[in-house]
Computed example of a mutant assay.
Amino acid sequence: MNMLVDTVIEDERWSAFGLEALAERAAQATLAGLGLAEAGFQIVVMGCDDARIATLNADFRGKPRPTNVLSWPSEERGPEFVGEAPELPEAGTAEDPEELGDLALAYETCMAEAAEQEKSAEAHVTHLIVHGILHLLGYDHVEDDDAALMEGHEVRILASMGISDPY
């Protein structure tokens, strides 16, 4: 069976957490929620620690501190106008899937946020993966209209997975 998500574990706590299965389930729900066929896409999800994500955040965003999730779309997919949905990519084939991009998750930050927000770690990390995949697909939350669109998708996709509104 072809997997939608290629999970890279840099911090073994993610293996014990079950990141591989959780990322696959979140990715399937996200693509299904947007009407995309999972068989034709590939996403890389890396589970790392705060030190590694702080380095990545500094290198790619000029912010030398840990964050919960980072995303690197394989190409720019943002919409032309604020509040508009991005044009979704065409699926590849199971043998040659369309690469959507890469996500990185920081263990300590994700677990601390889940505890602070009194959510299960599984629900919080699932939300961050859905959020990250939407970024890979061209969604953003800088402008209010874009944020409303993106958050609406997140809430709906998470509800389809039995996870309550994170906002």
Rank of each mutant, 00 (worst) to 15 (best):
L34V: 08
L34Y: 04
G35K: 13
G35Y: 05
L36I: 01
L36M: 15
A37S: 09
E38A: 15
A39Y: 10
A39D: 15
Q42F: 05
Q42R: 14
I43M: 06
V45Y: 07
V45W: 12
M46Q: 10
M46W: 01
M46P: 00
M46H: 02
G47K: 06
C48F: 01
D50Y: 02
A51I: 04
R52I: 04
R52A: 07
R52L: 01
I53Y: 00
I53D: 11
I53S: 07
A54N: 07
T55A: 14
T55Y: 04
L56V: 02
L56Y: 11
L56K: 04
L56T: 02
A58L: 00
A58S: 05
F60V: 08
F60I: 09
R61Y: 13
R61H: 12
R61W: 08
G62M: 07
K63W: 10
P64E: 08
P64K: 08
P64F: 11
R65P: 00
R65A: 11
R65V: 12
P66I: 13
P66A: 15
P66D: 14
T67Y: 03
N68A: 13
N68V: 10
N68Q: 05
V69P: 00
V69A: 12
L70E: 14
L70C: 13
L70P: 06
L70D: 09
P73I: 08
P73V: 13
P73C: 14
S74M: 02
S74L: 01
S74C: 07
E75R: 10
E75Q: 10
E76N: 11
R77G: 04
P79F: 14
E80T: 10
F81C: 03
V82Q: 13
V82C: 09
V82M: 04
G83T: 03
G83H: 02
A85P: 06
E87H: 06
E87D: 15
L88Q: 07
P89K: 02
E90F: 04
E90P: 00
A91K: 06
A91D: 09
T93P: 01
T93F: 09
T93S: 15
T93C: 11
A94M: 10
A94R: 12
E95M: 04
E95Q: 09
E98S: 12
E98P: 00
E98R: 15
E99W: 03
E99Y: 13
E99S: 15
L100K: 05
L100S: 08
D102V: 06
D102I: 10
D102Y: 07
D102N: 09
L103A: 10
A104G: 02
A104C: 05
L105N: 07
A106N: 01
Y107Q: 02
